[in-house]
Design a protein around this nucleic acid. Structure first.
Lengths: 156, 156
DNA sequence: GCTTGTTAGTTACAAAAACAACTATTACCA
DNA sequence: TGGTAATAGTTGTTTTTGTAACTAACAAGC
């Protein structure tokens, strides 16, 4: 077939959600290999681990609120991470529904390793772009994704 | 808990794959409601439909190569779209392994409706950003995601 | 104190995706 | 030719996710 595009003013290849997905998938897939091959972690597990590594002790709800991950996914990731002894769960003594989550030394070690790997990977991903480009990109993405807003995930 | 971040120079909230994912998920989820509620389409089905709408007749492999979707997902999406009479499959007469896929008039109608909706949605998403911001963002994303390279999906 | 509503987190079931193995056909090449 | 490798596409099975419904605990108003 020829390369003729038979649309009327619409360009899928310039459609933002499409571009976002392609870029996100590309970077996710590459990075996924790292935490999966090295530690057998799932995407959500990695995300929970990173949040705990970054922010220290949090509750499951805190993590979900920050990362906009649904609570059932958090619940399963926490369960799995606890089973591997990467984190410790401590019931709150002011509210018995709540559990505080902290990384164990083993979890910390995994976090540090993956964090360093992540940084190296990001550097590679961004080589060829200027600092201004990168700063601009990140600012726009943060705004599009609502990062930092700490909104709660809408219930099912 | 307090807002103290106890990391050494790493910022998850500025980590590119994280930002990409947050932004992509945000826009995907919002747009998903549209094609799901209106036509009961799955994500991959929508993507296949759009590619056929954009580029006209293609094979399943063409689509997978362009959109970097795995062939099993394409296969099932094509099956489902054909069952709904949104596309027609025609065996190639030069290579009996190959099938040409084209949208039916019904499929075209769905495509046009969703395309217009997509444009409106994108406009809303981008309101508040300057034209220069948008152009810059799209250029960087296209490069990050390798859009336009037409690479084949790595086999399982 | 009771009733009603809300929140934290889990569990069970259904939908979708990932992964692997397969058929059929074509391409390559000695 | 004939044999091996590669390609198009499908199917079956396993994981992972999405969704809903649930338990337990707390909060607020009366």
């Amino acid at each position: 077939m020829t390369e003729t595009v038979k649309t009327e003013g619409f360009d899928l290849l310039g459609f933002l959600p499409y571009l976002l997905n392609q870029a996100a998938e590309e970077s996710s897939l590459t990075f996924q290999k790292l935490y999966k091959d090295r530690y057998g972690l799932l995407r959500t597990e990695w995300r929970v681990l990173f949040h705990l590594g970054m922010f220290g002790e949090m509750t499951a709800t805190d993590i979900g609120s920050r990362a906009k991950i649904h609570k059932t996914k958090i619940s399963r990731a926490v369960h799995s991470l606890a089973k591997r002894r990467y984190l410790k769960r401590t019931p709150s003594d002011t509210d018995r529904r709540v559990e505080w989550l902290v990384l164990t030394p083993a979890g910390e070690a995994v976090y540090r390793d993956l964090r360093d790997t992540a940084q190296a990977y990001e550097a590679k991903l961004l080589q060829g772009f200027s600092d201004a480009d990168v700063a601009h990109l990140k600012r726009v993405l943060a705004r599009l994704g609502g990062v930092g807003e700490s909104n709660h995930v809408t219930e099912a």
